[in-house]
Design a binder for these strands. Structure first.
Length: 463
RNA sequence: GGCUGAGUGGCAGAGUGGUUAUGCAGCGGCCUGCAAAGCCGUGUACAGCGGUUCGAUUCCGCUCUCAGCCUCCA
């Protein structure tokens, strides 16, 4: 069907992707814990895996894409308390905000978006199974713990060996645990905390179990791809494997994908460091598509350094691509062009979007050349360019509309005013009053509007 | 301390055992009333030191530097 290679964190190698069920892919991605706005790091996960899904579909797969929402955890409880708000109200607020950000980034909706709080029954029964199978125990404080020593494969994903990890140094020693790396499956509720009934009293699920429950419920015990940010590799994903495989007795996931971090000044962007930009903030200055391009301009496993310069470059790059698409009617080619083939080769190599994008630029260059010389060929190339852009979620807007759109939420001159100025300038031009014509052009330039003359016809775009 | 990963031209960022990444910026030219856009041309880049090789930025070893995980984090 294809020769898609994916880097599997489990084997630390690129592997030929082969779905469990021919033609179908089950994909689970760890989504947001909803207690705050999404930052650019979250945007990266969304865009990267959205691109993975789009590309898998481009290859002809039917994709079951599940991206969960964690809507109960300690931080949510704290925030709700601070805001004097019911926790479910708080989470709903940020779920809505998240959906807005996703729309801005042209991220498609997943097939399913399960909420942890809607899967409590499944979570409880999974924990019960783990207890029954002696993989979990109830501590003296009433919390239920997973026993890492009971699972022989523990550490396979992260490469951590229990013996080598210095417990007590970085990990707090907890009297209730048999092993310091044992982790909570069920947490007893304190007074006033949100709680659900369980055989172990009122409480809530621990951090990792909800993903095991939701993933296996939505996609089956064994599925194709599981993804998320690098930092989830350990302990979150390691624990998911331990829980799921111990409970079901089956292999959990074939391919593990982890995306790299967004950095600021060579440091990880993170909530705990406080050095993050929210998607919302960045959208005040840049178009969603510019952010999306920025994310895809480097390989998903590489670090991605955030800066205005980078976003500005993305802006220029998109301007070039959209400019190439102006004034050409795309016409579908009957054969797969060399460009598209090279694009697919790049994407087949572990979703190398950076390389794939470079092919798009080569195509744009050819398109620019052929526009005047051979319009029919140009139309085919325009379609090729769009064919490549589609799985990346780029270039989906009308070129003229894009180029004339305002970036961010800045106050801008209206289109009507611009057209009026252009009409004035045309008058000046016909009178060969170059001084006035240039003056008007300069004025518009100061408003961020660039004019392009083609004889007596003038097109405009915003910078 | 344990375990990962990375160091490429002015910047960003792919890739390769011997031949052009790509984008932005710069320089020269074409086009234009002048511009803009576009096109053409243009850069002794691959952290350091050894090794393997006819030949290494690309493979191996060591050194240096940086980042990440091991604690909530995408």
């Amino acid at each position: 069907m294809n020769s898609l290679q994916i880097f599997n964190t489990l084997s630390r190698k690129k592997e030929l992707f082969k779905p469990i069920k021919e033609g179908q892919v089950g994909l689970y991605v760890c989504g947001m814990t909803v207690y705050d706005f999404c930052h650019i790091g979250h945007a990266r996960v969304m865009v990267v895996f959205d691109t993975v899904v789009r590309y898998l579909k481009h290859l002809g797969y039917k994709v079951h894409y599940v991206r969960n929402i964690t809507d109960i955890d300690d931080k949510i409880i704290v925030r709700a308390l601070e805001a004097n708000e019911d926790f479910s109200q708080l989470t709903q607020r940020f779920i809505d905000e998240m959906h807005q950000d996703e729309a801005s980034l042209n991220v498609l909706k997943p097939s399913l978006e399960p909420l942890a709080t809607k899967f409590i029954d499944n979570i409880v029964s999974m924990i019960q199974t783990l207890i029954d199978k002696q993989h979990a125990y109830v501590g003296s404080n009433g919390d239920v713990y997973y026993s890492v020593e009971s699972f022989t494969g523990y550490g396979q994903l992260s490469g951590c060996k229990l013996d080598d990890m210095n417990a007590g140094e970085r990990v707090e020693v907890d009297e209730n645990k048999r092993n310091p790396f044992d982790f909570v499956l069920w947490k007893s509720a304190k007074v006033g905390e949100p709680a659900w009934l369980s055989p172990w009293g009122e409480g809530r699920p621990g951090w990792h179990i909800e993903c095991s429950a939701m993933a296996t419920c939505c996609l089956g015990n064994h599925f194709d791809i599981h993804g998320g940010g690098m930092d989830l590799q350990f302990p979150h994903h390691e624990n998911e494997i331990a829980q799921s495989e111990a409970a079901t007795g089956e292999k959990f996931v074939n391919t593990w994908m982890h995306n790299g971090f967004v950095r600021i000044d060579d440091e990880k962007m993170s909530k705990s460091l406080g050095n993050f930009f929210t998607v919302r903030e960045v959208l005040k200055q840049y178009r969603g598509e510019e952010i999306r391009f920025f994310v895809l301009s480097s390989h998903y496993r590489s670090p991605l350094n955030y800066s205005d310069e980078q976003l500005n470059e993305s802006r220029s790059a998109l301007e070039r691509l959209y400019t190439a698409l102006r004034n050409v009617a795309p016409v579908q080619n009957t054969v797969k062009s060399d460009f598209v083939q090279r694009f697919e080769a790049a994407m087949n190599d572990d979703f190398n979007s950076a390389k794939a994008i470079s092919v798009m630029f080569e195509c744009a260059n050819e398109l620019n050349k052929l526009k005047t010389r051979n319009p029919e060929q140009a139309s085919l190339l325009a379609h090729d360019l769009l064919t490549m852009a589609d799985p990346l979620g780029l270039l989906n807007q009308d070129p003229e509309a894009y180029l004339q759109s305002t970036a961010g939420s800045n106050e801008a001159m209206s289109s009507d005013d611009i057209e009026m100025k252009i009409a004035q300038r045309l008058q000046a031009k016909t009178e060969k009053n170059w001084g006035l014509a240039d003056q008007i052009r300069d004025e518009l330039k100061e408003q961020g509007v660039v004019l392009e003359d083609k004889g007596l016809e003038t097109t405009w775009r915003r910078q």
